[in-house]
């Protein structure tokens, strides 16, 4: 099986601040990978490097067989991206947004029409096509954003906390679509704070203090540390890492005295 993402010792520093370091993992094509970790752990920075937006300061990564440093344009053409912050044009209608992204991914004529029809029926946007995006509810906005990210039928779909602040029903609808896409062969990289979402991924990566401290399937990870569920595992990791952090070890010793 070929790899959708292959990263080796990937790292990014902003001046003296090390945001991400030593991230290595291999993700096979067609899999769903969940990215978990506390806020500020470096999930978004890692994702941005993999999308070819942010240049890594160390290490290397191949996405869909292309190098993130040298071939970012090839990567951008083949991935779909949807961010935690809602970033569609609110003063455009749903259809105008879709049209814009069709053009952005160089789709024209019949191809654009076919893709449009396909995406609209998959996300069931028919009833909202002429509505201004600004007037949609949070759940609907996320679905439109997903539709825009799918316009060019990407090989890899990157979702940065796509369901943050979305109601449970919309969340379920959203994940049904994600699983369907994965079944059809699309690779999906998704960061999330919801453990039920993480549990249903094929692979999980746990990011903490800018490092990938664990990678594997949810079942493997739980078994390895002997935890019954992901919530426990998450808290266990956070506490263990906090103790191992050199800055905290001093404090712990002092407390023990």
């Amino acid at each position: 099986m070929s790899l959708a993402i292959d990263c080796n010792n990937l790292g990014k520093s902003f001046g003296n601040y090390v945001a991400v370091q030593g991230v290595s993992f291999q993700l096979p094509e067609g899999a769903i990978m969940g990215f978990v970790g506390p806020n500020g752990a470096g999930k978004t920075t890692t994702i941005r490097m993999l999308c070819g937006v942010l240049l890594p300061s160390e290490g290397s990564a191949k996405v869909l067989g292309f190098d993130v440093k040298a071939q970012s344009e090839e990567i951008k053409q083949r991935i779909g991206y949807m961010s935690q912050k809602f970033s569609l044009y609110e003063d455009l209608t749903v259809e105008e947004n879709l049209n814009f992204y069709a053009g952005v991914y160089s789709l024209t004529g019949v191809m654009a029409q076919e893709q449009m029809t396909k995406v609209i029926s998959r996300i069931t946007l028919d009833s909202r096509l002429n509505q201004m995006v600004g007037s949609l509810s949070g759940g609907w906005k996320q679905r439109v954003a997903l539709a825009c990210a799918l316009m060019h039928n990407p090989q890899l779909l990157v979702l940065d906390e796509p369901t943050a602040g979305v109601d449970p029903v919309s969340r379920r609808v959203f994940w049904d679509i994600i699983r369907q896409l994965s079944k059809e062969g699309m690779t999906i990289l998704v960061s999330t704070h919801y453990m039920d979402e993480a549990d249903s991924c094929d692979y999980l990566g746990f990011v903490f203090y800018g490092r990938l401290i664990a990678f594997g399937s949810p079942v493997q990870m739980k078994e390895k540390e002997g935890r019954a569920n992901l919530d426990d595992l998450f808290i266990y990791y956070v506490e263990r890492e906090a103790v191992e952090d050199p800055r905290n070890r001093q404090a712990v010793k002092r407390r023990q005295k």
Partner: peptide, 13 residues
């Protein structure tokens, strides 16, 4: 301001 630039940079534009 509206965060749409963030989306644009991940596209081939």
């Amino acid at each position: 301001e509206r965060g749409t630039m963030e989306q644009i940079v991940v596209t081939p534009i």
